[in-house]
């Protein structure tokens, strides 16, 4: 019996969904995105930032994504679509920072399947903006593992109005470590 590769198979389906025009572009964020840069840490879901072909209209709906995936074996469960046993959360960029994150995502592959991951600096900036305890933990992992370009991060933080938040974060968590 062959080994199951749920993430690879999920990404194949997402790539097909993009080829079929349901989404314009996507990039992996969250813990799985962070794993591209850091040592792997357990997570229960896959966060995908998606842009939709109809953007520019006032109403953004994820229904076409859900319908597409449900017709191919996906199951809607709360805010997720479960594909190959992995809950996938689809997020549309809610601001300029997240939009830039999708546009400037890094191309890579999972076992030969092409995919895109939000850059380390954008992941840190998005985590800073989101600001939950687990986001702060993730930022610290990026800093401690030296996985973020501090100059690029500073530029992103400044351009997106997060300088005060970053200063507070530095003061609270990084004081004496730099």
């Amino acid at each position: 019996m062959g080994q199951a590769h749920p993430v690879k198979e999920t990404l194949e389906l997402i790539n097909q969904m993009r080829a079929d025009g349901v989404i314009s572009e996507y990039a992996i964020g969250g813990a799985v995105g962070a794993t591209f840069y850091l040592a792997p840490a357990a997570t229960v879901d896959l966060d995908l930032f998606v842009t939709l072909p109809a953007e520019g209209t006032l109403l953004i709906s994820l229904s076409p994504i859900y319908e597409y995936l449900k017709s191919r074996g996906g199951m809607e469960q709360d805010e997720y679509v479960v594909i190959k046993e992995w809950p996938v959360q689809f997020l549309t960029p809610g601001n300029a920072l997240q939009e830039e994150g999708v546009k400037q995502a890094v191309s890579t592959n999972v076992e030969g399947v092409p995919t895109r991951v939000i850059s380390a600096e954008h992941l840190v900036a998005i985590a800073l903006e989101t600001g939950r305890a687990k986001d702060h933990t993730r930022i610290l992992q990026f800093v401690e593992q030296d996985a973020v370009d501090r100059e690029k991060l500073k530029d992103i933080v400044e351009r997106h109005g997060l300088s005060t938040m970053w200063s507070r974060f530095e003061q609270r968590f990084l004081k004496g470590t730099q």
Binding site: V7, K8, P40, V110, E111
Partner: peptide, 9 residues
């Protein structure tokens, strides 16, 4: 990334 994804799984 492929190896890391296998570990995550």
């Amino acid at each position: 990334f492929s190896e890391k994804i296998k570990i995550l799984e």
